[in-house]
Design a protein around this nucleic acid. Sequence first.
RNA 1: GCCCCCGUAGCUCAGGGGAUAGAGCAUCCGCCUUCUAAGCGGGUGGUCGCAGGUUCGAAUCCUGCCGGGGGCGCCA
Length: 563
Amino acid sequence: MIRQQIADWITTALRTAQAEGALSFETVPDFEVEPPRHAEHGDYASNVAMLLAKQARRNPREVADIVRQHLPEACAEWVDRVEVAGAGFLNFFLKAGWAGAIVRTILQQGKQYGNTQLGTGQRVLIEFVSANPTGPLSLGHGRNAAVGDTLARIMQANGYQVEREFYINDGENSTQIRNFALSVLARYRQLLGEPAEMPEDGYFGEYVKEIAQTIRQTHGDTLAQGEPETIVRQFEQIAKSLMLAEQERDLRDFGIVFDRWYSEQSLYDAGAVQATLDHLRQRGYAYESEGALWLRSSAFGDEKDRVLVRANGMPTYLAADVAYHRDKFERGYDLLTDLWGADHHGYVARMKAAMSALGYDPNRLVILIYQLVNLYRGTELVRMSKRAGNLITLREVIDEIGTDALRFFYLLRSHDSTLDIDLELAKEQSEKNPVFYVQYAHARICSIERTAQERGVPMPTLETDLTVLTHPEEVALIKRLADFPEEVALCAKHYAPHRLTAYALDVARAFHGFYTECRVLGSEPTLQSARLLLTRATRQVLTRTLSLLGVSAPERMERVEDE
RNA sequence: GCCCCCGUAGCUCAGGGGAUAGAGCAUCCGCCUUCUAAGCGGGUGGUCGCAGGUUCGAAUCCUGCCGGGGGCGCCA
């Protein structure tokens, strides 16, 4: 808010200078107002003059000086002085006590603080996880889930109307569903003591046996009798829905609830796949060759054309997925966001090409690719899961380290980076663990408030004099708090939810510094009141940040002493 | 061969046109009569993979190369 305020003053100054003929330029550049690294450069600095110099045909320092002289008088309320420095930076030095005004604003805005208008009026569909219903969610799906859900929360905070959707890959003609069903069927028969062989490329994880067991318990021993094709179809339905139920349960325990579970099969049932193929043909972007139907994706930058319908008449996964994305656009969203694993990156070009072929703006489809996740126990790479065999399940990691730690760790790095998670570290209740560091700051705040209550110190009103908040640690903390709305907006603009963990750590760090240097309870009454309000404002921002991350903000954290 | 991601402190990574490059961990030295020491302060530690280019200014943008990971099905 203070940054926006300064930016507005600068814009006003530019307009005034322009009107007076002191400065000539066509467009206001996209300049920045940032807290400089070094205190001698003021509280906030702007690069506007350097960006404008060429247009204005003057050297940057001259431009800076002109801007400085045309700043509106209103800024005198908060600004002590403005210096021109370096290559042409405008350095703003704020009056002692400016920080207090920010604390008041934060508290006045309450739960609204941190919200922005960035996406007001825009509908977004975030499609994520979308795991195959043939196995439990994996460690990789967990990253997808954490990034997608937090991004959804962030976009909501920015005013977007957000919906979360899970696309179920349940096409009945797909080989994977059939294989899965055949695997479950084989296990089921084995349970009944019948000789049954697993399909060669079947699913060999323990969970398949569990599903067979569940089916036996709920449907009895006669489900594998009758006409073979009917049996397999039946097993497809039952096994698939059991698997989906488990995925939904895991996600709910991970703090994620989808607005919609969208079935691939429903696209076939509604004729949407066929309609999309016809539409592509009409537009001239689908053609027959070698007995198959092809998408002319190479016309839109893809390296080659792709098969939509195989020579055997079966549509490919791509065909359904194109129909699905068409359906999403037709539902009226302004923006579609997909979250895919790195192993699907090669698919991006063809999906965007398909959207272009259908006449949609491919830029309205944002596909985020996240890199792999490796799990370590100390320095040892964890490869296998007992239950799922060749993959590590999300469930077992949640069970071991908890939702809070796992969500935080997933968002500790950019989705562009491969992520290593160390189970030992995530479980450790110590200073090494960043989740605890942040949560501990919150618990400390609650502890101060509890003690205040015990001592009969009431929470001060907003009329309290906040200009006494001038200690460097207080100002540093308030600056971090003041950044919150800007940070929330940046997270959305760059699709970078991981920035939020960094921000949470920054706020926690600033608070711990304040806590150490500035005694709250027992200080001089005016100061005590002001500090109590600062503490409350910090709590509000921390709680909100953690809730955007889907991480809890505990009111107490007792250290467990281990010998 | 082509495509995507990464290469920054001993380790794990932020920063992705702006001033003297940051954090955590590790390591060394300090700080608990007083709101939770799961905390705080300080020290050590860097040719931002290499070479060109663009720019007033490059870790950041462009090109090429090197190294690591992933992907290149009428699988999903």
